[in-house]
Simulated scan of single mutants.
Amino acid sequence: MKFTKLTSAALTAGTILSILAPTATFAATAEHDADANGGTELPMSDKTEVGISFGDNTDNGNTGYLRLQMVPHVLDFGNHTEFLSQYPTFDATGHNVSTDSNDRHASYKNTDTNLTATLNTEDPKLEDVKGKAWATVVDKQVTRENNDPEGETAKTTKKSGTWQLKVKSDDALTATENGETINNANLLLKNTAYGRTLDVPKLTNEAQDSGFQADTTIDNDDVSTITNNVSLSLDGTSPEVEVANAADSEGQGANVFGWDRSDINLTLPKDSKVGNNIYTAHLTWTLYTGVTAS
Results as ranks from 00 to 15, higher is better:
38 G>C: 06
38 G>R: 01
38 G>I: 02
38 G>H: 03
38 G>Y: 03
38 G>M: 02
38 G>L: 02
38 G>K: 01
38 G>N: 01
38 G>A: 03
40 T>Y: 05
40 T>S: 05
40 T>C: 01
40 T>I: 12
40 T>P: 03
41 E>V: 12
41 E>R: 12
42 L>C: 06
42 L>D: 10
42 L>M: 07
43 P>M: 00
43 P>T: 02
43 P>Y: 00
43 P>Q: 02
44 M>D: 15
44 M>I: 13
45 S>L: 03
46 D>S: 12
46 D>P: 00
46 D>E: 15
46 D>T: 09
46 D>V: 03
47 K>G: 01
47 K>F: 04
47 K>E: 14
47 K>C: 01
48 T>K: 04
48 T>W: 01
48 T>C: 01
48 T>A: 11
48 T>D: 08
49 E>K: 04
49 E>Y: 05
49 E>P: 05
49 E>I: 11
50 V>I: 14
50 V>W: 03
50 V>C: 02
50 V>E: 04
50 V>M: 00
50 V>H: 02
51 G>C: 08
51 G>S: 15
51 G>E: 13
51 G>A: 15
51 G>R: 15
52 I>K: 06
52 I>T: 12
52 I>V: 15
52 I>Q: 11
52 I>D: 11
53 S>L: 08
53 S>M: 09
53 S>T: 14
53 S>W: 08
53 S>R: 13
54 F>C: 04
54 F>K: 06
54 F>L: 13
54 F>V: 10
55 G>W: 11
55 G>M: 10
55 G>F: 10
56 D>E: 14
56 D>A: 04
56 D>Y: 04
57 N>L: 12
57 N>H: 06
57 N>R: 11
57 N>C: 06
58 T>M: 07
58 T>S: 15
58 T>C: 06
58 T>D: 14
58 T>P: 02
59 D>A: 05
59 D>F: 03
59 D>V: 09
59 D>L: 03
59 D>T: 07
59 D>R: 05
60 N>Y: 09
60 N>I: 14
60 N>Q: 09
61 G>L: 04
61 G>S: 02
62 N>E: 13
63 T>H: 09
63 T>V: 11
63 T>G: 05
63 T>R: 05
63 T>P: 08
63 T>C: 00
64 G>L: 08
64 G>I: 09
64 G>A: 13
64 G>W: 10
65 Y>F: 10
65 Y>S: 11
66 L>R: 07
66 L>G: 10
66 L>T: 08
67 R>I: 03
67 R>E: 14
67 R>C: 08
68 L>I: 10
69 Q>S: 15
69 Q>R: 06
69 Q>K: 00
69 Q>L: 14
69 Q>I: 05
70 M>W: 10
70 M>A: 15
70 M>T: 15
71 V>K: 00
71 V>P: 00
72 P>Y: 01
72 P>N: 02
72 P>I: 00
72 P>D: 04
72 P>W: 00
